[in-house]
Simulated assay, not measured.
Amino acid sequence: MSTDSNSQVGSSSIRPSRTGFVASGTGSSRPSRPGQLDPSLAAQLTGGMDPQQVSEMSHVSAASLLDKVHHTEDPEVVERVLTLVDREGVDLIAELWSDTDPDSLPGILWRLYMLRSWMRRDADGISRLWRLGEPTDTAASAIAGVDPAPEADDIARTADSILSGAFTGDFAVALERAGAFCDVIARGIKASGRRSTGTAETKSEQDEAALRTASSLNGTARDFLHGAALWRRGRLE
Score class of each variant (00 low, 15 high):
Arg111Phe: 00
Asn6Gly: 05
Leu84Met: 05
Gln53Leu: 09
Ala156Phe: 02
Gln44Arg: 15
Ala42Lys: 04
Ser216Met: 02
Arg33Trp: 14
Thr72Met: 01
Val54Cys: 03
Ser12Glu: 15
Val184Ser: 07
Ala209Leu: 11
Glu205Pro: 00
Asp91Asn: 14
Ile93Trp: 10
Ser64Ile: 11
Ala123Gly: 05
Gly48Tyr: 07
Ala123Arg: 08
Thr72Leu: 05
Tyr113Lys: 02
Trp231His: 07
Thr158Leu: 11
Arg194Phe: 09
Phe21Met: 06
Ala142Gly: 10
Ala159Val: 02
Gly125Ala: 07
Asp147Thr: 14
Ser196Tyr: 04
Leu82Asn: 05
Ala228Ser: 10
Arg157Tyr: 09
Arg80Gln: 00
Ser13Val: 09
Arg30Lys: 13
Asp223His: 06
Lys190Tyr: 08
Glu208Met: 08
Thr220Val: 12
Arg177Cys: 09
Gly179Ile: 00
His59Cys: 10
Gly145Pro: 08
Thr19Lys: 01
Asp183Thr: 15
Ile93Gly: 08
Val90Phe: 14
Ile108Asn: 04
Lys68Thr: 12
Glu208Asn: 11
Gly20Met: 00
Thr220Gly: 14
Ala228Asp: 00
Phe167Glu: 12
Ala42Phe: 05
Val22Lys: 14
Asp74Pro: 03
Thr100Ser: 04
Ala229Trp: 03
Ser141Met: 02
Asp101Ile: 00
Gly10Lys: 00
Gly145Tyr: 01
Val81Leu: 09
Ala214Lys: 11
Leu109Met: 06
His59Pro: 03
Ser161Leu: 00
Val173Leu: 14
Ser24Pro: 04
Ser5Met: 14
Pro148His: 15
Asp153Leu: 10
Pro75Asp: 05
Met49Cys: 12
Pro102Glu: 08
Lys190Gly: 01
Arg128Ser: 07
Ser196Ala: 01
Gly20Asp: 01
Trp97Glu: 06
Ala156Thr: 08
Arg195Gly: 08
Met114Cys: 15
Ala123Cys: 02
Glu208His: 12
Ala159Asn: 01
Arg128Asn: 08
Asn218Tyr: 13
Ser104Cys: 04
Leu65Asn: 09
Asp74Arg: 06
Thr3Pro: 08
Lys68Gly: 06
Ala214Val: 12
Gly145Asp: 09
Gly145Leu: 01
Thr220Tyr: 02
